[in-house]
């Protein structure tokens, strides 16, 4: 599973700017999947800034937040774990850490700890986010995936197949650079056409990240 883990991590992390050139279907999807697998295998850590924009179409309203993102793949013998930290810094302070099967949240000064399965609502949101970040979404039967490309990169459209997920999520778009070295941008489109965009910038791949980053006190 870890090989997919990095797919979206990388997905989430490129500072490339995509030209808005029309995308067309990818002919050789097997080769593209292989590139994404390779990208995942070669990425052990990611350290990046991110900008998130929530666009509420009906209300003509945008909420922009910024922060920092860390990913670390840890291997101890046969055991592998994928750790994530999303740290929102402006306009509010909020940190979410996924450490194995634990979810840790720091909201202002309060720290909350959850088992992954203890909160149905949280699990639903988290499953979507994590599977995008760790790339398991590519192998998931919860989505039908369409592959597109233009001169500067690739776009994967992930359409939910399950009824309950369709009620909350219309589709996810994942953008890769042309060499598939990283993910550039994530877009999550809701049924009412609200759109959440996360763009990654200033990324550092495979640098050292302390395990303490994935603990909260």
């Amino acid at each position: 599973m870890h090989k997919f883990f990095v797919q979206l991590l990388l997905v989430c992390i490129s500072s490339l700017t995509f030209a808005q050139v029309a995308f067309k279907p990818v002919k050789d999807t097997v080769a593209l999947k292989a590139k994404i697998d390779n990208m995942s295998k070669n990425t052990g850590s990611i350290d990046s800034d991110f900008t998130q924009v929530k666009n509420m179409s009906m209300l003509s309203e945008k909420i922009t937040s910024k922060g920092h993102f860390w990913f670390l793949r840890q291997e101890s013998g046969a055991q592998k774990s994928n750790n994530l930290r999303w740290e929102y810094t402006t306009p509010y302070q909020y940190t979410i850490v996924i450490n194995k099967d634990k979810i840790l949240i720091k909201d202002e000064a309060k720290v909350k700890k959850y088992d992954m399965n203890s909160n149905k609502v949280f699990k639903e949101i988290n499953d979507i986010m994590v599977s995008c970040v760790n790339g398991t979404v590519l192998n998931s039967n919860k989505f039908k995936i369409a592959y597109f490309e233009n001169e500067t990169g690739y776009k994967l459209e992930l359409w939910p197949t399950q009824k309950n997920m369709k009620e909350s999520l219309k589709k996810i778009n994942m953008y890769f650079d042309k060499n598939v070295t990283s993910v550039v941008k994530l877009e999550m489109q809701e049924p009412g056409d609200d759109l959440t965009t996360i763009e990654f910038s200033n990324k550092k791949l495979n640098g050292p990240i302390a395990a303490e980053k994935f603990m909260l006190k």
Partner: peptide, 15 residues
């Protein structure tokens, strides 16, 4: 008017 609740991660909870 509208009162909309979204999570920090961007998912809309209610409107």
């Amino acid at each position: 008017s509208h009162l909309v609740f979204v999570t920090e991660l961007g998912m809309k909870m209610f409107d």
